[in-house]
Nucleic acid binder design. Structure first.
Lengths: 356, 356
DNA sequence: TGCTATCATGTTATCGATAACATGTTATCG
DNA sequence: CGATAACATGTTATCGATAACATGATAGCA
């Protein structure tokens, strides 16, 4: 007998009537404010309990012009990084008393931007988190549209722009750390397998690698780099290409762990010993990387933390706008530092220098 | 000069005033309904365009008692499976014109259930997708609370209950397929590394393995199974334990790919040849599994599809409730079939029987 | 004692839209 | 040609709450 109770919603008026008071008084009780006698408060609370009354956030949002809801726009939920970021976002939003309206964007062309923004804004979000990585020109809408958005917007994983608040992992520093680690291991010919170079993150990682080499007095131009598309399959191809073009490699910095996985596998097949003949460093620090064979040295970022941090930032922006007219601080671009996890795919080299 | 435009929202009244008509007429134009003269329509549309008017979904939801918003409650976004499901959910919701209110639950105890439900319901969601896997007794609230929820609720990944609509992957069948594949490969002593057995999915996979063995005339009780917790680390431990207790294993069916990854690695370390000495089958079909060494035979589920399917179902429920009083069909438990992907970790055994 | 501050509660307006009803105009038709 | 249907638009009520204002009682104080 699955009766679907059509139960009408209990409204504040029902409660007021049942308790013999005005709706205003019920409202006062629910919000714990101003003067309500102890007696009345008790009575109302009892009725609320009995009737199972829950105030409509919707109605409240309308009159208060504030919804305690944030819009989140993501891209790439099928990958673990963005998902973990969303995880952090959801956790922190919850902790701070905000609910999330979520939209996923699939195309990167930016043609759906207006549609998504309208949908969020028409639902009165208090702020928007744009968690779509910067790829190609998919952020150009920003210069035209941003000024006309009536709520704060915070961007994740975007090239810093003055006047636009953003939070990103410091991909550049991460890549520098990875490369310097390889140098410290004694590697002399360090290749790179990059991500798709229209991605800002991929560019940053490549730049870090290149700069670190230059800083070490090596001519970076002589070092080859090949482009993958983040997938294991592309990593395999890129690695073959790299090896062919540059057979004397003694190390590779791979722009993500998934591509590094196929480098390990392919090296295995070709009987290239890791790390003795070839040191490998990945990027991301996915859970599996500790169980690759050999386990992978990698630059670990914490996407979850990124998300948490982002929410804290946007909530601050939202609240300062509610209270005052101006933000306490001007918008900023902030970075989160990744950190290097040294494992078998490079570890052994630390003591003995090689490749003289 | 980052001026934060405080711009007041343009309301229907502003438009009506500017166009010299009533708000009702503007409403009619916006919703393309009933009789509006071509002339008036044009004029209003022009004004709408000029002023950049966008109707407030919030206000509309309030009066229409319908929000075109669905609540989604997830657990485990830091894992790839649930994220991909959410991906499917978001895509399909978008296609069908619904927006998502998202809540992530971290604890499994169920103490936050009421809070989450209230939060969603107070925002007038038209339906709820409960995408939290069934673990231990975390679904008991259902029997008490479900009847009092005024909108349709659909559960993902839950043991079928009559009268409660749900959508799940057929874990049992998947496990049967995996085990029968191993049998067909000629394996005779097939072990199992299970997930945490308070998870319904883990139980189902174990049951499938056990039943397949029994069906093949083997005494399943003689075959050992060890419990992991889905993580690679636990897989390693479970595998060692299993090997110690049952050294003559010639195959393992591992309840997920992450644990299978460490089985591969550990086997490698102990110089156990895969698949010759030990065949391995995983579960999930994560992207990396094709690039493990050796590549992993696995039961691939499609969490994305699961999510899409779930949204289609709940939207149907929502719409049929809007139109009629009763649902077209009674609530059902539906299953999605996974499929077996044969790779190197078992493939070679297909031709030559072994282990006599 | 009369005046003001504090307390307790109610009344009316409002948020931004649509529903329901009303009204006036123009066709259509027997 | 008058009645009815179809068209075009406006007015008022409503969704569920809170804001703003109003009112009455009590209490403290000069």
């Amino acid at each position: 007998m699955t009766l679907t109770h059509p139960k009408k919603r209990v409204t504040i008026r029902d409660v007021a009537h049942a308790a013999g008071v005005s709706t205003q008084t019920v409202s006062r009780v629910m919000n714990n404010i101003s003067y309500v006698s102890e007696e009345t408060r008790k009575r109302v609370e009892t009725v609320v309990e009995e009737m199972g009354y829950r105030p409509s956030t919707l109605a409240r949002s309308l009159i208060q012009q504030r919804s305690y809801t944030l819009g989140v726009v993501t891209y790439g939920l099928k990958f673990i990084g963005p998902s973990r970021t969303l995880n952090g976002i959801a956790d922190m939003a919850d902790q701070l008393g905000y609910t999330l309206l979520m939209k996923e964007i699939d195309s990167l062309s930016g043609d759906r931007v207006d549609e998504v923004l309208d949908s969020l804004l028409s639902r009165q979000v208090d702020g928007i988190l744009w968690a779509v990585p910067e790829i190609g020109h998919n952020h150009i809408w920003l210069s035209d549209r941003l000024a006309s958005i009536p709520v704060p917007v915070l961007f994740l994983t975007m090239e810093p722009r003055t006047g636009v608040p953003s939070v990103s992992t410091d991909n550049y520093q991460g890549a520098v750390m990875a490369t310097e680690h390889l140098l410290k291991c004694g590697c002399q010919r360090i290749g790179h397998i990059s991500g798709p170079l229209d991605w800002w993150e991929a560019k940053e990682r490549k730049r870090g690698w290149s700069d670190a080499l230059i800083k070490a007095g090596m001519d970076a131009s002589e070092y080859r780099s090949t482009e993958g598309n983040w997938s294991p399959a592309s990593g395999e191809q890129a690695f073959s290409k790299l090896l062919k073009a540059f057979p004397y490699l003694d190390a590779v910095f791979v722009a993500n762990d998934q591509m590094a996985l196929s480098v390990l596998r392919e090296a295995h097949r070709q009987e290239i010993k890791i790390p003795e003949q070839l040191a490998v460093v990945g990027f991301d620090g996915i859970a599996e990387s500790a169980y690759f064979y050999p386990s992978l040295t990698t630059v670990s970022q914490n996407p979850q933390l990124l998300g948490e941090y982002a929410i804290q930032n946007i909530v601050e922006m939202v609240q300062s706008r509610q209270e005052k007219r101006e933000a306490v601080e001007p918008p900023q671009s902030r970075f989160i530092q990744p950190n290097l996890i040294v494992r078998e795919s490079t570890a052994n080299l630390l003591s003995e220098h090689k490749g003289k």
